[in-house]
Every structure is written in C-alpha cells, then in structure tokens.
Nucleic acid binder design. Structure first.
Lengths: 108, 108
DNA sequence: ACCTTTGTTCGTCATTTCACGAACAACGAA
DNA sequence: TTCGTTGTTCGTGAAATGACGAACAAAGGT
C-alpha cells in the first residue's frame, strides 16, 4: 500500500480553489474577468472592508498567481494574470467536465 | 457609495471553492467523479493521513454539500451529492467561461 | 453477550485566516 | 521641499484549519 498519490495537478487546483475560497476574492476575480482591470481604491469604495484587509486579499490572489498589479502612480492597476488564469480555467474545466452521467458505474 | 455588493452566487462559489481548497479533498472529489463511490476505509489505505483527519475532510465536503454518505454496515459509502455537484459545476462553468479575449477592453 | 471492524468525536496543539487601526513608504503635485 | 493620496506592512486578536492519538459509538459476526 504505497501512499502519496496526490498529483501536482490536484495540488494546483486546490491552490487556486483556496484562493477563490472567499467571497471578496471571488468578487474581485469576477470583476477582473469582466472589465480587464481595476484600482484597489475603487474597490474599497464598494466593498465592506477596510483597505488594509483588501490589501491582504489582493496579496493572496497575487501569491496564488491569479492577478498582478502594475504601478500607475499614485495608484496600482490590477489585472488578471492571463497565463495562470488560463491554467486555472483549464484545470477546473478538466476537473469539472468529469460529468457523472447515468448509468451509474458499479462501485470499485 | 452603497456597500454590500457580494452576491449570493459569489458566496456559493466561494463556499464550494473553499471546500475544494485542499489537495486531499480534491483527490476525493476527483475520485468520486470518476468512480461513483468509495469507502473511507479504502482511502486511508492510500492517503498519507490518519482516519480521524480523513473523517474531518469528509465532513467538510459533506457540510459544503458536495458529497454524501450512506451507511452500508460496517462501512460507509460515499458518493457525490449529484444535485449540488451539478450546481457547483454550473457555477464554476459560468464563472470560468468569462473568457478574457483580445482585444482588451479599456479600463473602467 | 462479546469481540471486531469501522468511522466519528474529543482534546490538544501549531498554524493560518480574516478583520481592524496605526504607522509607514512611495510618489506626484503644489 | 512639503503635502496629499494611495497602498503596504505591522501589531493585535478572535476564529478557523489541519494534523494527531485516544476514546467512544454502532452494528454485524462468532
């Protein structure tokens, strides 16, 4: 019974999923997937959190590789990280398209 | 500047994403999407965690509504919760299909 | 009735998450 | 150079997460 069967792909999807695992971060991702970029200052206007908290969430999205910031002084412009966003899309698509259709397979 | 713009859909996706946000849970979901059901005893054989930890992960997937257990004494058979799995699929599909295609829109 | 098998629950612990406000840093504009 | 504006970092605290082993509960088989 050899252990360790968690694949790199599963770890990657889990990593992306974890980054998506908060309503605020989902909001930001959805916004960026619609409008190509945004400024965090504008976000604090509408989101029910203070700027330091937003900054943390944006950092998490950055660390997960889903977004990237570009200095446009005095503000910072955030966009999706296209490359990784595509990877995430593909991974989720692949994972989700494993449709469970009837007839149900036998167990094991 | 009215706050609170987080939609129920965003919360739902975030909830599902959070449940998927761990390699072990991704592994279980992927397995169940392929083979229709499994027994947690078999999982502990292969996964590098003890049964109490696995039990916690399965509970999280259950609480998120992604899987369900059925007693088949002395074991418990786990399957995907089809209804919610479909909902999760649809939500993610909807979210992910927001493709970012060229040409890039203007900011704001 | 007792034993065995199986999974959950409990207690513990270290780490991470999420939120806030205060302080700091960067950088144009006046 | 000083002053705003903007975003990050720091310090704090409460709560959640992830892991373990021990103890418990359920239920079938002997």
């Amino acid at each position: 019974m050899s252990k360790i069967i968690i694949t790199e792909e599963q770890k990657k999807v889990a990593r992306y999923a974890k980054a998506m695992g908060h309503p605020i971060r989902m909001y930001v991702l959805e916004l960026l997937s619609k409008q190509s970029c945004c400024y965090s200052g504008d976000l604090t206007e509408y989101l029910p959190i203070v700027k330091s908290t937003l900054s943390q969430h944006l950092k998490e999205l950055r660390d997960a590789g889903l977004i990237q910031g570009e200095i446009e002084a005095p503000r910072i412009k955030y966009c999706l990280n296209r490359e990784n966003w595509k990877e995430a899309q593909d991974l989720f698509r692949k994972f989700l398209k494993m449709d469970i259709e009837e007839p149900i397979q036998k167990c094991q």
